[in-house]
Design a binder for these strands. Structure first.
Lengths: 234, 234
DNA sequence: ACGGAAGTTTAGACCGATCTAAACTTCCGT
DNA sequence: ACGGAAGTTTAGATCGGTCTAAACTTCCGT
């Protein structure tokens, strides 16, 4: 009982909250050049002043480079920790689906909590049990132990070529409702489809999956990553 | 990200720390009539003054009955929460052994952390996956959802009858080192043995397990619960 | 080139959980 | 029956993480 949560090796005082900040900064850095206080605050649903305070703490711990009024960036150490947490998250998501029958829209929430308390030992057993997987249930790449991140396709359904045979490789969404909707369309990783039509002015996109045809909002289409599929059906 | 950890239904502000206090008080109450501040402090490895502070908090939350200078006892509500946490703990222990190949000496530590973050949904899936088990890997009973606790044998190896055929039903120890030792002796739940001799003055106890004979310290023997085994081998 | 809006940081407070040091109870042995 | 040791509680501090309110920067548009 009581005993402190032992953390692998490096820095001692890494709390779940710190892990969340690092993860957030990590994700935002690959969406925008400058990661700013307010952005972090919005994502984490805290006030900007709280973020400022935490950024100072993180800077003291050498986890981020923080320049007041300008922005923040992860140090190599901060980056490594972010990737470890993301690895935990995605391993857990996949495990819950594969081993315990969760659906892909349920696992994000669970993983959000568990990622912070997964011991190295448990992580290893889970990874082994899954055969050292590289993709989670949404097609998101699972960082390897050495911090390597398998890169995946970058073409979205919103700008894929018409008429070609495509395969869904990744669905970049964590909202349970939308994921359920997307699943009813059959737009899960591995699914094959063709882009029939793209309406102008960021309008909806029409796809055929099997025999069914669906119109998709372009914002939704932009969250679905695809690649050109090799000659003929699965 | 961020989102608060939603707790089932009843009281809102139940933190992991509170859960640990409740669990501790629960266990101590069945070992001794009076649960006193210092005892709790020792078990949780905090100072007595910290315990006093927390007991007041718990009393405000109607989780305990606290009488200064005398002692503390769980209310029905506190008891219920303690049992929920214990259920989590033991389900997790069993799951780690059955599903992920952990050994019985590794699981306590893991469960100690995970018990506080297990969602109701995950608990349900794990319980179902295990077929709604009633005993964890050490033979400790798993509280049912309704708070029912399957009672197990109370006869210890230290005061079991000589020469009779016995079966180990429970090993009341959480120390990894000792558990490993006990396992090498084959004294795991389900094992059969006979008590050969009991040295006087709380001296060691001699047992035969299969063909092997071992002398056990009486304190160790007292942590091993047995029952008389029905006619003939497993 | 400069004034104001938007964004950011500082100052100060709070809460949960812990600590140390000091005061207070309890109770046991004489 | 009472004095002291052991146990317990109070008082006040600290730490992590958050908040509000006020001050300060940045930068854009005129």
């Amino acid at each position: 009982m009581a005993k402190a949560v032992a953390r692998k090796q490096l820095p001692a005082g890494i709390t779940p909250v710190i892990e969340d900040y690092l993860k957030t900064i990590y994700f935002m850095a690959q969406e925008q050049a400058q990661v700013k206080t307010t952005d972090v605050a919005k994502r984490l649903r805290v006030k900007p002043s709280s973020v400022t305070a935490m950024l100072k703490t993180l800077a003291d711990l050498k986890l981020v480079e923080y320049r007041p009024y300008y922005g923040v960036a992860l140090t190599p150490l901060g980056n490594q920790i972010a990737l470890e947490v993301i690895r935990h998250h995605r391993l857990i998501e996949l495990y819950l689906v594969k081993a315990l029958g969760f659906s892909w829209d349920e696992v994000h929430e669970e993983a959000e909590v568990l990622e912070h308390v997964l011991s190295e030992k448990l992580e290893a057993r889970i990874a082994a049990h899954l055969g050292d997987p590289t993709l989670d249930p949404h097609g998101d790449p699972i960082p390897a132990l050495d911090g390597t991140l398998p890169e995946t396709a970058t073409m979205t359904l919103a700008d894929a070529p018409l008429r070609k045979r495509l395969r869904v490789v990744r669905v970049r969404d964590q909202d349970a409702e939308r994921l359920r909707y997307i699943a009813t369309l059959g737009l899960v990783p591995g699914a094959h489809l063709r882009l029939i039509e793209r309406a102008p002015f960021e309008g909806p996109v029409t796809v055929r999956i099997g025999k069914r045809v669906h119109a998709l909002d372009s914002r939704l289409a932009r969250t679905i990553l695809v690649e050109e599929a090799p000659r003929h059906p699965s």
